[in-house]
Amino acid sequence: MTGDDAHWAFGTSFVDPLAGVDTTLPDGVDGGELAAYCLMLGDDALVASHRLAEWCSNAPDLEEDVALANIALDLLGQARLLLARAAAADPGAVPPLPAGSPVPGEDALAFFRDADDYRCVRLVEPENGDFGETVARLLCFATWRLALLARLVDSRDPVLAAIAAKGVKEVAYHRDHAARWVVTLARGTAESRRRVRAGLRAVWPHRAELARTHPVEARLARAGVAVDPADVVAEVDGVLAQVLRAADLDDLGPCAAGPVLDGPGGRDGRHTPDLAALLAEMQVVARAHPAGRW
């Protein structure tokens, strides 16, 4: 890891995100599978971060501009580490670039993969909507991610374990931030209550996908490397129910079972159209200069 608590984003010299970290694969773990798993968690963080960063200069007040940017920076840091771990675990997962291209593996993964190759859940993809919808989505996402990372600190892959340990502290704050806003808006004015309720309703259908287990997650969970999302369903539902109670929005219900998502989802590369649009924008400069140095 980068050593101390200092935010790596503030450095200006190029630093290999995994410099000094032993990236040897744990016994019996397939590099391709580990890379696939890192892409799932990394893509979740990258896309969620990108959306939150869109709030920059658009937030309800300057203080919130700063707060949302902090959250986006935390998630971007996690994404960078996870994509670097994926590239190290399976160099074959990295999209091919022109010979001599200086683009590092994590950037090749972020900027030269098409939507079909992204592995994020659909929850993080849609356009932001209003502030009510954004905090509803963040509540859902951070609650789920915190439950996953809290278990991932015991991963047999020391790199994943270290990334999770750093992430737990960050995401606990994200969850708290979102929960406070949901409660504040729900108990603020009639208008804010209407809006946050609409936001929660817009986000809710995506929760079913968070409870599903992809075969890669199942196999790596058995190997002690990954977390099976099925194992965190009860915890996530419990936390969300608690927030909804505080918000006096019990009627939305935790909907533990949720609407079943049929067929393949984001983890299989089947995404909402919003992701393709997001990536078209995010990747435009990098792809125009495949041999570029940044």
């Binding site: 935010h7 984003a9 920059c56 960078r80 994509l83 995010m282 400069v285 200069h289």
Partner: peptide, 15 residues
């Protein structure tokens, strides 16, 4: 910010 061509540049610019 939405189009910065590397993850490091994206973070630097956002910060």
């Amino acid at each position: 910010i939405s189009r910065a061509p590397s993850l490091r540049r994206k973070a630097t610019l956002l910060a």
